[in-house]
C-alpha cells in the first residue's frame, strides 16, 4: 500500500467521528521505483493532507519531506522528487493501520490492508 492510499483512507467504524489519519504500525517497508509524473503530483497536491503524509512517511523511515508545504513549492524539481518518492514509491508491505479514535488495528498483509469490519462495527 502506498502512502497515496493511506492519505485517502479513513476509519469507517460506526461511531467514529474523525477516523483520519490512520496510524501506521510498520513491520516491513519496500520501495518500488515508478516514473514521476509532475502533472499528477500537482493535481494531487491540493487533495493531500500534508501533515498526515509527513507523519506517515516519517513512521516509514523517510524523513526528507518538509514540515510545511504550499503550492508554490511545486515548481521545485527537488521537492517534487521527494513528494513523489513519499507518495508513490514507499509501500507498506507488512504491518497494520490503527484507527485514531478506537485503536482498532487493520492488519496489512502482502501490501493489502484488511479494512473489513466486524458486524458490530458497521
Amino acid at each position: 500500500m502506498r502512502l497515496l492510499t493511506h492519505n485517502m483512507l479513513s476509519s469507517n467504524i460506526k461511531g467514529v467521528i474523525n477516523g483520519f489519519p490512520l496510524g501506521i504500525v510498520v513491520e516491513k517497508v519496500i520501495e518500488k521505483p515508478v516514473e514521476m509524473n509532475p502533472d499528477f503530483l500537482k493535481n494531487m497536491f491540493a487533495k493531500i493532507e500534508w501533515k498526515a503524509l509527513v507523519d506517515a512517511s516519517r513512521s516509514m523511515g523517510y524523513t526528507e519531506l518538509p514540515e510545511q508545504a504550499d503550492s508554490s513549492m511545486l515548481d521545485s524539481v527537488d521537492f517534487l522528487q521527494r513528494f513523489h518518492h513519499a507518495l508513490l514509491e514507499l509501500h507498506l508491505e507488512e504491518g497494520a493501520l490503527v484507527c485514531p479514535e478506537t485503536g482498532r488495528k487493520f492488519p496489512v498483509n502482502k501490501g493489502i490492508p484488511n479494512m473489513l469490519l466486524h458486524e458490530d462495527e458497521v
Partner: peptide
C-alpha cells in the same frame, strides 16, 4: 486480490466490503 498481486496490478489494493461503506476521505 492474491491473483491481482501475482499479476502485478499497478494500483493499490484494499480488502474491504463495499456494503460497509468506503472508508475514504471526502472529495478526493
Amino acid at each position: 486480490l492474491d491473483i491481482a498481486l501475482e499479476r502485478e496490478a499497478e494500483g493499490d489494493l484494499l480488502l474491504g466490503d463495499m456494503g460497509q461503506g468506503l472508508g475514504l476521505r471526502p472529495g478526493v
